Simulated assay, not measured.
Amino acid sequence: MDKIKDKKPSLLLHVCCGPCSSNVIKELREYFQLTIYYSNSNIYPDTEYQRRYQELLRFIEEFDSSINVIEQSYRPIEYLHNLSVYANEPEGGKRCFLCYKLRMNDAYRYACHHHFDYWTTVLSVSPHKNSQWINEIGLSMPQSETHFLCSDFKKDSGYLKSTKMSNDFHMYRQTYCGCIYSYQDMLKRVEKQ
């Protein structure tokens, strides 16, 4: 009876990279049986996608190797086709909303199919991400098969804790969000410096 009482609910955690997810994983694993879900076909180019994924795997191996990591197949052409409708949108606009929604929808479907009690995303840890949009997207999906865990992981110094933790684990920290448009913006910033 005690084992049933003490069992943690399962949670599928969509992550974008190791640095952003580090402190979120640390905090959530106290309350949930975590599975990491890496669904990031938005990331350009493929070498950057692999670098972020491998860094996440290295972090999990060093931090808590009992946590399972699931990688969604990388479909950058399909993703770019979807995002290209908003190619001229500024960072933080409609293109970003769509990007959140596409990745979160992948996580939601996986959580439903594999019977997770809860699901959420680490995206809200970034000061550049709109937590209100993220929570609206999550709550807009049916809650009958799995429940969305609302969050704003940047609160209570969450972003700073993630930054410190990523430094402690000597993690690679990217200089742009991920998509080809944010990559191009980063190149323009570097050129101006």
Score class of each variant (00 low, 15 high):
M104Y: 10
M104L: 14
M104C: 10
M104D: 06
M104N: 10
N105V: 05
N105E: 13
N105G: 14
N105S: 15
N105F: 09
D106F: 01
D106T: 05
D106N: 13
A107W: 09
A107Q: 07
A107R: 09
A107L: 12
Y108G: 02
R109S: 08
R109G: 00
R109K: 14
Y110R: 09
Y110C: 10
Y110P: 05
Y110F: 15
Y110V: 07
Y110D: 04
A111F: 02
A111V: 06
A111M: 03
A111Q: 03
A111Y: 02
A111G: 03
A111N: 02
A111K: 03
C112D: 06
C112R: 15
C112I: 13
C112M: 13
C112T: 13
C112K: 15
H113I: 14
H113R: 12
H113C: 10
H113Y: 12
H114S: 08
H114K: 13
H114T: 04
H114G: 05
H114W: 06
H114D: 06
H115D: 15
H115K: 15
H115T: 11
H115R: 15
H115I: 12
F116D: 02
F116I: 01
F116P: 01
F116V: 01
D117M: 05
D117Y: 04
D117G: 04
D117K: 09
D117L: 04
D117P: 02
D117E: 10
Y118N: 02
Y118T: 01
Y118V: 02
Y118P: 03
Y118F: 09
Y118G: 01
W119D: 02
W119S: 03
W119F: 12
T120M: 02
T120F: 04
T120W: 02
T120I: 05
T121D: 06
T121W: 05
T121S: 15
T121Y: 05
T121C: 14
V122Q: 11
V122M: 13
V122F: 09
V122G: 08
V122T: 15
L123G: 08
L123P: 08
L123R: 10
L123T: 13
S124R: 08
S124F: 06
V125S: 11
V125P: 08
V125T: 13
V125I: 15
V125W: 09
V125K: 11
S126W: 11
S126H: 11
S126L: 09
P127T: 00
P127G: 05
P127H: 00
P127M: 03
P127S: 05
P127Y: 00
P127F: 00
P127I: 00
P127Q: 01
H128A: 00
H128P: 03
K129N: 07
K129P: 05
K129D: 02
K129E: 03
N130P: 06
N130E: 05
N130V: 00
N130Y: 00
S131I: 01
S131G: 12
S131E: 08
S131Y: 13
Q132H: 14
Q132W: 11
W133Q: 12
I134F: 07
I134C: 09
I134L: 14
N135E: 04
N135I: 01
E136P: 01
E136T: 10
E136R: 07
E136Q: 14
E136K: 12
I137F: 01
I137K: 02
